[in-house]
Design a protein around this nucleic acid. Sequence first.
DNA 1: CTAATAAGATAACCC
DNA 2: ATCTTATTAG
Length: 719
Amino acid sequence: MLIDPERDIDCRQYDKYEEKGRHYVSKGVLNGSIAWRGGACFPGWQGEDLLMDSDAMVHSRERGPSLLSGHRIDYRSELNDQQFRAVIHRDGPLLVVAGAGSGKTRALVYRVAYLVESGIDPKSILLLTFTRKASREMMRRAATMVDERCMKVSGGTFHSFAAFLLRRHSHRRSHDGSFTIIDRSDAQDIIKLLLGRLGLKEERRRIPQAKTILDIVSRAVNRGTSRGDILNDEYPHFSEAEEIIERVAGAYESFKAEGFLMDYDDLLVECLRLLRDNEDVRIALSERYRYVMVDEYQDTNWLQAEIARLIVAEHHSIMVVGDDSQSIYAFRGARFENILDFPRLFPGCAVITLEQNYRSAQPILSLTNAIIEQAQKKYSKHLFSGIAGDGKPVYLRTSNEREQARFICQRVMELRDSGLPLSQMAVLFRSGWHSNALEVELVNRFIPYAKFGGLRFTEAAHVKDLMAFLRVSCNPSDTIAWFRCLTLHEGIGSRGAQSFIASIVTGKKGYAGLIDERVPSRKNAQALLRLYDLLSGLEGSPAQILRMILSYYRPLLEATYDDYHRRWNDLETLTRIAEGYENLEDLLNDLTLEPPESDPQNLGGEGEQDHLVLSTIHSAKGLEWNTVFLINLVDGCLPSSYACVREEDLEEERRLFYVACTRAARSLYLLSPEIEYSRSYGSGASSLGFSKPSRFVEEMDNFRELTEEWVIDRNGTCR
DNA sequence: CTAATAAGATAACCC
DNA sequence: ATCTTATTAG
């Protein structure tokens, strides 16, 4: 489509205005459908933003309608109208509401390409995504379209961006800026320590577990409410522990402050504070990042939305992309309302809706539309697909998990034999351990697979051990890391470690505290001397440091774990990762914020590349496969039994179901095994009995028509 | 005070 | 099944 401002824009509905000699449109309607703002929104408009390479912006009718002059990529024919408008949008706020599979990523990638091709400095583009993997992937795609310049785009997660910013402006904080980022389990250790320290063990009242306390504290931060409210709303059974929680929370804050520690939430909170309190920082950022894009906007919480707003406070040049139907991170404080609030936050913003689905065949889409139709709150989007379907999604009930696993293995092998690569098939599930039974079967049949989600590489004990050494050498006040390092040694338990830590950190003796005379010479004296030698002798690149620590740690590893061989491999992986880093702090930073996926388990099979994907639904976000198997579609698994109490939680589970099904391009298999509950399975579930199919299935009256039910017979399956 | 052993509880999603 | 906590012997 050729956009002709004179013809396509309804001139009665926008205000033209002039500023510093340039012409702008503040609002308008294009072909009667979209809100519009900004004179530089499309090529050809005479009030171009002159910041750009003006040549590239001129819409050239002489050269034919499809190619923007100066651009190698034929944006107009490669994108649909809505995508095209989003891509060539230049300045001013833009909200793209993108249904599942509607080419949201495509729009982002093309916009990066378009901006870079127009001569924008890639470093002035900031792409905030949900995972670093996602941003790298987008840049890579843009780079293959344009050139290497696209790799220079600034990008990352909100958390990594916050960490970067905080380190850069560290002089504004009281300490020298070397802080350590702690993950959830570190935070949990701290809470446990504090519970002991505060002498709360003797309390009569029931005290929530460290994990629960942390959860409450974190939720309050991410939702922007008080801990009391969270307690009342979500943990009523602990409401009498409020006072204790407050005390622990206070102690936790001061503990972190003393040790220069920051948890995930602190990164956002401090980043927001930095932006709020320092106008000069905001201005500098606005100048540096002229084009800001936020992916998965429906999963941002209020802190993130606020950070994004402040980054662009000076120029409002921000594009956010999201889909309220795919918001699945409420447990982390995500507010899909952010999408709805966006136009209010940025008055006059352009809104573009992407409704054409390019991923799934129509029968799959019909089902997913019906699923989301059940949602309490929905914001109308009618997805349509041009892809005719081969068949309806398959629904299959099996008598147990084992049968479910066997069916999948059999079907996967059939499909592979018919030429579909394993990597084009995925098995999705609600919780990490739902795939256990299947994994056993896959191993038996030598089907290689890679699992995403669940336990992370950096959560393995041995990896944490090694990171503790690194953290100590990076930040000698890191009490938690010291604790781990010290108790690793024979003869040093929690008590001994505490006294050393007191000497090292509180007594400010540094490493010398390790060879403190106060500590009588015992059999551990020798070990401590060696530890002292190790730590004070650490120098060089992160990889060199790591190797020094490894040679020290190896005997400890072998003494502690029977399966040290496997674990040693992980540590070598870690060293390989470290090779790419010049400074230790960056390495630790990245490991905590963006842990590498644990090595794909290549079990049997010939090619290393091709493996079946197993993934939690959360980790499958944004991805797609030709064939998707959704397993354990059973009440108590999906929806999870934890989510069956509150209405909002249940709604989120429904969206999860929706997200899972919309990952499928050509075929979708829904499996409901009967699971026998030996013990109570979550809250109040009957202690004995069999699971029922998911209520989401039961609730849909047209489920039968939209799917095809299979039953298992003696030799396999048939209709 | 530590380390080994026994009994008991709990089990999600993720930066 | 795995991780935590309580108990007890060294």
